[in-house]
């Protein structure tokens, strides 16, 4: 490797990583938190069979899962201004990522809630608890344990998908890399570098996932997933 390339890599590294910490990570964390809220609400609406709302939720999930994320980003960022709704790039990306991931996570959460044995709900009723109380204190915590690995998976996907936000002018890690590469023409080295940073981020999440699973297991006396 020439000294020039090495120099470019060394000077660009803190810049790219910095954008990662300042933009990619916040974008991921905020979007994913909102996605989880959307997911739990959508899952509950479907499970509690709320008339009318349930159809809206199914429709929303159908639209989101049936169209590409990139197209959704373009629709909202470049399309909505035609209707007079012009959002700045970052909030726009947050909205699209949250709505997109929310639809997928809704199915994960719904499946996890449905996997909690019916008897848990019935036992709750028999000690006098209400539907909401049982959901919050008994069913959702158990469902969360089941949903935790697939949700971690979604989070990992999302870290990488945020690179699509470069297309709507959000200067996250990938766009920063593109700029440096455009100026220096060191494509191979720079894209390898940003790939490595994504890999580091995802490795940290995987590691946090293991930690989280251990903690959740301890809180449930070893294994919760039983018939």
């Amino acid at each position: 490797m020439s000294e020039r390339v090495l120099n470019i890599l060394i000077t660009s590294f803190p810049r790219i990583l910095g954008q990662g910490l300042l933009v990619t990570i916040p974008l991921t964390v905020i979007s994913f938190a909102l996605a989880l809220i959307i997911a739990v609400i959508c899952a509950m609406v479907q499970i509690a069979d709320v008339k009318g709302l349930k159809q809206i939720v199914r429709f929303y999930i159908w639209i989101i899962r049936g169209t590409p994320l990139l197209v959704q980003l373009y629709l909202v960022y470049f399309g909505l201004p035609d209707l007079g709704v012009a959002l700045p790039a970052f909030p726009c990306a947050v909205a699209v990522f949250a709505l997109n991931e929310g639809a997928y996570c809704a199915e994960t959460v719904r499946a996890a809630i449905e996997a909690v044995p019916r008897g848990q709900m019935e036992a709750g009723y028999c000690v006098g608890m209400s539907y909401i109380q049982i959901m919050r204190r008994i069913v959702l915590p158990q469902a969360f344990r089941t949903a935790f690995p697939p949700l971690s998976n979604s989070l990992i996907s999302m870290v990488k998908d945020t690179s699509l936000a470069a297309n709507i002018t959000v200067t996250e890690m990938f766009m920063t890399t593109q700029r440096v590469a455009g100026r220096t023409y060191e494509h191979l080295a720079l894209y390898a570098e940003v790939a490595l940073i994504y890999l580091i981020f995802c490795t940290v999440i995987t590691w946090l996932q293991r930690l989280g699973e251990k903690k959740l297991n301890a809180m449930n006396g070893g294994n919760v997933i039983r018939a």
Binding site: C126, V127, M129, Q133, I138, Q142, M219, N220
Partner: peptide, 30 residues
């Protein structure tokens, strides 16, 4: 239901609660 109780064939203890919490849950929450 505040005057009755039910014991199931398959126990149906709250899986995410300890033995003590299983007993206190209804008392505290309901």
């Amino acid at each position: 239901r505040r005057h009755t109780a039910f014991v199931f064939q398959s126990f149906n203890l709250f899986a995410n609660k300890t033995a003590l919490q299983n007993v206190t849950e209804g008392l505290i929450v309901a």
